[in-house]
Design a protein around this nucleic acid. Sequence first.
DNA 1: CGTCAGCTTGACTCATCTCAACTAGGGTGG
DNA 2: CCACCCTAGTTGAGATGAGTCAAGCTGACG
Lengths: 240, 240
Amino acid sequence: MDTHPADHACGHCGSALCAACRVRSISVCAALSADELAALAALARDSAFPAGAEIVAQGGPAAAVLNITGGTVRMTRQLPDGRRQILGFLLPGDFLGLSFGETYGFSAEAVDGMRACRFERRAFEGLLLRFPHLLRRLLDAASSELALTQEHLVLLGRANAAERVAAFLLGLRRRRQALGGDDARIDLPMTRQDIADHLGLTIETVSRTLTKLAGERLIAVEKGGIAVRDPAALDALAAH
Amino acid sequence: MDTHPADHACGHCGSALCAACRVRSISVCAALSADELAALAALARDSAFPAGAEIVAQGGPAAAVLNITGGTVRMTRQLPDGRRQILGFLLPGDFLGLSFGETYGFSAEAVDGMRACRFERRAFEGLLLRFPHLLRRLLDAASSELALTQEHLVLLGRANAAERVAAFLLGLRRRRQALGGDDARIDLPMTRQDIADHLGLTIETVSRTLTKLAGERLIAVEKGGIAVRDPAALDALAAH
DNA sequence: CGTCAGCTTGACTCATCTCAACTAGGGTGG
DNA sequence: CCACCCTAGTTGAGATGAGTCAAGCTGACG
């Protein structure tokens, strides 16, 4: 899976070029000293996954943690009878593996072509003991992922279909904007089934709701995404 | 709100008697050195809240973090139109305030009479810089709270009423057992409305579901709680 | 003894799900 | 190049699980 040998200087992470990593400033690697960055870089391995590839497996040993550098990842939990819940989507700068445990509590799969900076968990934990800065960054990351998850919990517990879809679109837009994305167009690399499994709806309800929002001129449904026509009305719908 | 002056030795936390704290071994204060424990103790203030009291307010400045030492706390998020979602219940040993941010993202209220060990946030953050051990414990706490929240997310996204209620009862039982509780009887200090707002249901559906489970001999509804009659069947229902 | 909050139960409604048909686009192989 | 298939998405019609509204029960408390 690793696309570079251990000592290779890669463009995203790894080796001496963590310094050039384009997501570093927004990831757990931000605000580290030169020492810390060097130690981190020594452990980092750049890796790429094609669309659909499984990155970590639910129930499997938690052997690695990853810092996403490109693409989109879905975290899924599967029930024994096949029902699926997508816990969330990870974007560049997000950290995969915050739920420290002996095994992964969910699977992670590449939604589209995806790149990440990979660390062996044992070695990474070693770094945590030496570098409280990194530990602190990780706590902040865990804290904000917790806040995001709680936000989503409210949605699943108390919002109707239109509110869920509106909140999902705006949440994705907000995160993409932080990465320098467009605010009029929201790319949706994931399928309707993914969106449905994230929002606790069916694929048909997601489709109908998008059609309805388009009919009300809040959005326009486009190929591979949607265009935001009335951000204010969409925000009022999302209601938070 | 503090029931003891700053230098008073209290039975739960605070002053020199952190050593005697009955939840220390399972809380973030576990596995600290004598030094660390002393510094923590110097900042701790024992506080008590009567049933229904608001401990922290959604949107208010995040001025304190608390370690629950007794009773039950509900974390609630309110939507502008009054809909309410209970994110979770905190039991003794749990830590309130993991979502580090400038303001609290939710309110916390005492379900029954409740005691906690309170730290001013600024001072507590100072400790984190000095004691990586504590930081590490906090990351583990955040990590397991994240896992719990993700578990609940699946429930709200994909489970029906009976599955939600069964999972809620068993989850509460498991946590209580870790605290030395009974496994045949589950006390429910919270109201049906609280349970409904936690499970994304209405009070009527919770009531009907409990009645139905009782009719199927999985549980018996008792005053202030339920008795577990068929743990295996209940577990099969919870389906995870 | 009356009141009130918490809870249960019943009858009916409705938002979402289920099942099914259909469309559109992309890839493949003859 | 076309015929075919396959996946993703949309739309419709009917079913259903949970919500809504309403009534009644129970125990605590003044």
